[in-house]
Design a protein around this nucleic acid. Structure first.
Lengths: 225, 225
DNA sequence: TTTCTTCTTCAGAATTTCTTCAGCTTACAA
DNA sequence: TTGTAAGCTGAAGAAATTCTGAAGAAGAAA
């Protein structure tokens, strides 16, 4: 399990880190609101241990941040305060549990495990276009509910078309989008033709030929709806 | 979905039953602690709706029972009480969600669906995925009830995959999750290949090769269910 | 220390995907 | 209608990625 410990009191921070490390987990820690946000924006954690009283502000801000970022971290608040209001506020903003200092490390561990157990899973975000349904997190594509296996280029291409449905996309734009800078000065687009061909074949059941049209001399267009 | 409704108030019980039956689910119900335990010992359910205030005792006992029986039912508490303590107690003992009376049936349904979706977590600190059962506190793994010894990296990897089942996980994410900061931009992932290979071999009896899939050019995915 | 386990590195094999190519078909314009 | 450029197709070679077994390195335990 990967943990982030946000705590300004170094002794406690080290104790927790050591305790969880010895248990086979991976711990990272920081001592301020600012560095916490920085960490959380760059990495994913299974669980965040959050002290409320930090030198540069209240830890609640971390909860707010996670909320806006739709992050999936489980958060366990560690705080010296024992007021019901703080508890309610923390749980209301999205904390998964609340523990008051001082506490036993064994209890902390038990609660971390419990919180992790209940951790809510992200709902899969889906993209639907006619008979085509794309699961973005699973990176899977279904046509009329039947799975279709796409290669990386095919998948990227399809996503690009659907994201720009209704618009004409030049072959240059496709090349730039799928290959980036590496692909300057090509005088033919054979590779695009091939990928389009394969994509159309795989999407035959989705009537791709009705939707994914060639625009002679320019490129392609995925008709809107 | 198969539901057990434990509720002594007949009107409410019938309403819920009808509502879920109309929606294509299978409902059974009972009106006491005793009959609930009886039902639960004989049958398996996907989700249990549990009233706390029962004529012959507090509903928490049902949670305790499920805990001892290593049952995998998702439990949603329905209760007239709104105190935080009750909520915490229920969630702590292993309930998956908590709903206060009175409520709309539509909301109940939404919560049941949500709870069912994250049902992968068992009530007893256990994570169950197909033939694989993981004891989170003991860090032990069983396949078809036969213990399998995993090394630390293998265990962490498996947990990470199962906690993110259905999602594609990049090799970078794996490296970051298992090695933390220490792992600055390696240019090859040989060590991941090796751990994956060993993990697959150890999970052969769990048909790991059907579930733990390679996503060419990206990473891996533990297919959902 | 020695011994045992786990982790990482490595090189070759196997697999999958990408690109190129030649022949063919289609669309446009004169 | 006809010529030319653009687009399509299947096949094959090239490239990239992943898998595998083995062995060395690092770490933990005795």
């Amino acid at each position: 399990m990967k943990l982030l410990i946000i705590e300004d009191e170094q002794g406690l921070r080290d104790n927790i880190t050591k305790y969880f490390n010895d248990d086979g987990n991976i711990c990272e820690s920081c001592n301020s609101l600012k560095s916490a946000i920085y960490k959380l924006s760059d990495y994913d954690y299974d669980c965040v241990l959050l002290d409320i009283g930090l030198p540069d502000g209240e830890g609640f801000a971390v909860l707010e941040y996670l909320k806006t970022q739709m992050k999936n971290e489980a958060v366990l608040i560690i705080s010296a305060r024992n007021s019901l209001d703080d508890k309610l506020k923390g749980l209301d903003i999205g904390a998964d549990d609340y523990l008051t200092k001082p506490f036993h490390l064994a209890e902390l561990k038990a609660r971390v495990v419990a919180v992790f157990r209940r951790k809510v899973f992200n709902t899969n975000n889906k993209l639907i276009f006619n008979e085509i349904s794309i699961n973005l997190t699973g990176r899977t594509v279904k046509v009329n509910n039947a799975p279709v296996i796409l290669t990386r280029k095919e998948y990227d291409m399809l996503l690009y078309f659907i994201a720009n449905k209704g618009k004409v996309i030049s072959k240059n734009a496709i090349a730039e989008h799928l290959w980036g800078d590496e692909m300057d000065m090509h005088d033919n687009f054979d590779f695009i033709y091939t990928h389009i061909k394969n994509l159309r074949k795989k999407l035959l059941d989705a009537n791709a030929n009705d939707y994914l049209k060639s625009i002679y001399g320019i490129g392609y267009k995925m008709s809107a709806e």
